[in-house]
């Protein structure tokens, strides 16, 4: 899949901007065009956080997306706000740990992952965001998992390189959880 217009939304502190940055960086490593746009503001941990990522083979026009074809919603207010805006056929990745209702729309490809539980199973609650990114890439392989792994390796400084592995494991778990809900989805592999 060559292009994606993604909105990631939830609480500040859930790693939303980081998730978006790693996806954007992965796209760039593949030679694609990509934009990363934070909903910047007087935000703080616990406030709302939104990040828009556009990936394309051609130069990107608008970094602003009104009608996303992919969504990651990490809490209930984000589900309520963004579900109605998704394009028909969009993929909706739901953080089931924080979203206590099913989607209302029937025209979306929905994957619900208990990201907190998956991350707890790894003894690393901070990687719930990577679980959800893995789920997204299982449903919409806009970049290869290997590219996200390279983006992570490029992000962490030498004394924190050990964090790459746990993040990649979280990606894989998320992808596997999504694959179980997506019969047609290719099983995710990480080099």
């Amino acid at each position: 899949m060559a292009s994606m217009e993604l909105i990631i939304a939830g609480f500040g502190g859930q790693g939303i901007l980081f998730l978006g940055e790693m996806l954007t960086q992965a796209a760039i490593l593949e030679g694609k065009h990509a934009t990363w746009m934070p909903a910047y503001g007087p935000e703080q941990r616990g406030g709302t956080a939104t990040c828009t990522v556009v990936i394309a083979e051609e130069p990107i026009g608008s970094p602003v997306v009104a009608d996303p074809d992919a969504l990651i919603v990490m809490n209930r207010p984000s589900m309520d706000k963004f579900e109605p805006r998704a394009r028909a056929g969009a993929v909706l990745i739901v953080n089931a740990s924080m979203v206590d209702r099913p989607p209302e729309r029937a025209d979306l490809v929905v994957v619900a992952v208990d990201a907190a539980a998956e991350a707890r199973a790894l003894d690393k609650p901070q990687v719930a965001n990577m679980v959800l990114l893995g789920a997204l890439l299982a449903a919409r392989p806009v970049v290869a998992m290997e590219s996200v792994a390279r983006a992570l390796a490029g992000h962490f400084p030498p004394d924190r390189q050990h964090l790459v592995e746990i993040n990649v494991t979280a990606l894989t778990r998320g992808a596997a959880a999504a694959a179980r809900q997506l019969p047609g989805a290719a099983s995710a592999r990480v080099a």
Binding site: T24, I28, W36, M37, P63
Partner: peptide, 10 residues
Amino acid sequence: DGITGQMMEP
């Protein structure tokens, strides 16, 4: 503008 300042792109 603020978005062009805050957004990232290669």
